[in-house]
Computed example of a mutant assay.
Amino acid sequence: MQGENNAGEKTPLFAIHDASVVRASKTILHVDDFTLHEGEHVALLGPNGAGKSTFIQLLTREVFPLYRDEPPVRFRGNPRPQLTDVRRALGVVSSTMHEQIRVHLPSVDIVVGGLFGTLGLPKQVEVTERDRQLALDALERLGIPEVAERDVMTLSTGQARRVLVARELIRDPQVLVFDEPCTGLDPEGMYHVRETMSTLAAEGRSIILVTHYPEDIIPAIGRVMLIKNAAIFADGPKEQILCDEVLSNLFDVPLVVDEHDGWYSMRGQYGA
């Protein structure tokens, strides 16, 4: 639920201030200031190893920043939220999660597993008819009801990726985090995953997208944050951020950015 601070302003969904994540005496991410409001969308763009995944782990509380008298990360204004509250609000879909599917189960069972935080059904758990219906509804909303009884290992990569989205959707999260969602997909799979993000954004859920490519940024996402060398490199409206000069500086190679009907693409400026 959205709250308000003493000035009558709405409390951000996430607020980060002076957060440093350190491993082996090396700072792998530093965030001066970042806020994300309920229903707001943002895309995180940057090179491999820049700190994008660590940033997401700060939000999901999988990693913690250095101690400060004032806690650096707040969730809905709470400096020490319960992990269960954060997980209830966030759904996370990643290509690495897809790689972890190694079980021959009907797709509907994979989706029901989202209620328990498992890839599949945990032992000694009785699945109710309501649980199963929630899973079928999630598959229906994503346009793949026909895969419900199919072995998830026999699905196309694009279908399996959408099954994982349904697995998160079954818990009705307010925020969907898509971490490199189009990695390993063919053009058809990419189309459907991007369409899925558009559908969820239209429902009023916050979309946090982590990607290397502007092509993944759906028109509904109006804000882009660039991460380079373990720090925020730029943050603002995509019309200002997604341009030749800024992305060339981000990736340290000459790039050309094109835009068509709210979609952006990037290509190398060879021979420059």
Rank of each mutant, 00 (worst) to 15 (best):
L29M: 06
V108M: 10
T157R: 15
L242A: 04
D216L: 12
I207G: 06
A19E: 09
P65W: 12
V21N: 06
D172H: 12
G236N: 11
H192V: 11
K10T: 12
P145N: 09
D33K: 15
V147K: 04
P71W: 07
P237V: 02
I218P: 03
L250E: 13
D252E: 15
S95W: 09
L155K: 01
A201S: 02
T84R: 13
C243V: 13
P122M: 11
V257H: 11
H260T: 10
I207F: 14
E188S: 06
A166N: 00
R102P: 08
M97F: 13
A234F: 13
Q2A: 14
F64S: 13
V175A: 09
L115F: 00
I110H: 10
Y191N: 12
L142A: 01
E38T: 14
K52V: 03
G204S: 07
C182F: 10
T154R: 02
V21H: 09
S25A: 15
A19W: 06
E168V: 01
G143N: 12
V210R: 13
D186H: 11
Y270C: 12
H30W: 09
K123Q: 15
V22K: 01
L247H: 09
A138P: 05
M225V: 01
S248P: 00
Q269V: 02
E140H: 07
L44I: 15
G204N: 06
V92S: 06
I241G: 01
G236W: 07
S25T: 14
E40N: 01
A234E: 00
K26I: 14
V224G: 00
L90G: 07
Y264W: 14
G91M: 11
L58F: 03
F116A: 12
A231T: 15
T54L: 08
R150E: 12
S156H: 07
Y270S: 05
G236R: 04
T211P: 08
L59G: 02
G268K: 06
S265G: 04
H17S: 14
R150Q: 04
L250C: 12
V103I: 06
K123A: 15
G204A: 03
C243E: 15
F251C: 00
P81T: 01
L134F: 14
S25Y: 10
I170A: 04
Q2Y: 02
G3A: 07
H212Y: 01
T84P: 03
P81G: 04
G268N: 00
E195H: 12
P219I: 05
K228G: 05
G271T: 00
L44Q: 00
L44H: 12
G114V: 01
